[in-house]
Amino acid sequence: MSTETAAETLDVTGQNCPMPVIKTKGAFDGIAAGEVLEVVATDSGSVSDIAGWAESTDGAELVDQEEATEGGRDVYKHYVRKTE
């Protein structure tokens, strides 16, 4: 994510379904309107899970999703903005 800075980062690496979505919801409740939450996961299913969660959740907007290799493992980064 090049233009925006996340207000908070949630690390759910090493956790599989359903934890990434559940913890994303928990951290998302804690940020203020307009802020962006960054979620760092190693679960490849989190890509569709977090996108689906953001789509179904009022006030959540999926800004970006990135895939990278860090420390020899695949890492999935999600950016969700609180719109209201």
Binding site: C17, P18, V21, I22, K25, W53, S56, T57, D58
Partner: peptide, 11 residues
């Protein structure tokens, strides 16, 4: 348990 906690995350 997985479905229950996930549904809770969906409100």
């Amino acid at each position: 348990l997985i479905l229950a906690s996930t549904a809770a995350a969906f409100g």
